[in-house]
Design a binder for these strands. Structure first.
Length: 206
DNA sequence: TCGACGATCATCT
DNA sequence: GATGATCGTCGAG
């Protein structure tokens, strides 16, 4: 069961790019009404904070919405996108920095039936339909703004140790959906497990 | 107070 | 590949 023990604070007190890479293969555990849903992370993106035009903390931007981005590493930042979907981020680094890692895709380990029910899709599920995308991952695990700012070291949403990937199994590429971000749009801050079928859109070449 | 927009997804052709 | 859904947030006025 040690694979499901929480990652320590020190794991998150590092640059977002490092944390994003090393989160691959780890477990994201959601406690939901006595049930435990376990997923294994296969795709992440780093957002660097003030210097990163794609980041909600770009240029030190700070509002009621993104306040939890400025917590110490190891907390959740959850926001609503396109009025419909939620995105789950892991805050990294020291307090007041504003860097984070977006959790983009995961595969089910346990609790798959509940996740499928949470997704409310009647048709047969394809490879990326369960949690192969940031909005889908949140829906499968019932993550919404109520979990904004919670600690990921304990409680109803936890990041656990799992088995980190060997470096040669990690693919890097540009981030998704941030064409507005100028030069930052091309930075290779998206990381995924090579060849994993759950990985979302513009699939990195394996 | 108002208008524009977005770290997406499902469905359609 | 294209498009509509849908609304909280933010900056401009």
């Amino acid at each position: 069961m040690s694979r499901l023990s929480a990652l320590p604070r020190s794991f998150f007190l590092r640059p977002a790019e490092t944390v994003a890479r090393e989160l691959l293969g780890r477990y994201l555990v959601r406690r939901l009404g006595g049930e435990r849903l376990v997923t294994r992370l296969v795709e992440t993106e780093a957002y660097l904070g003030a210097p990163d035009r794609a980041s909600h903390a770009w240029s030190g931007r700070r509002t009621a919405r993104n306040e939890s981005l400025y917590l110490i590493g190891g907390h959740a930042y959850v926001y609503l996108i396109y009025g419909i979907h939620h995105c789950l981020n892991v805050v990294t680094g020291a307090r007041e920095v504003g860097s984070a890692v977006l959790l983009r895709a995961a595969e089910a380990v346990t609790g798959e039936l509940r996740m499928k029910a949470n997704r409310r899709l009647d048709r047969a599920l394809g490879p990326t339909d369960l949690a192969g995308g940031p909005g889908k991952l949140c829906q499968a695990l019932a993550v919404d703004r109520r979990l904004d700012g919670v600690s990921l070291l304990r409680g109803e949403l936890i990041l656990a140790r799992g088995e980190p990937l060997d470096a040669e199994r990690v693919v890097a590429g540009p981030r998704i959906g941030i064409d507005y971000a100028g030069e930052a749009a091309g930075w290779p801050l998206r990381f995924a497990e090579m060849g994993n079928p759950e990985v979302s859109r513009p699939r990195p070449l394996a």
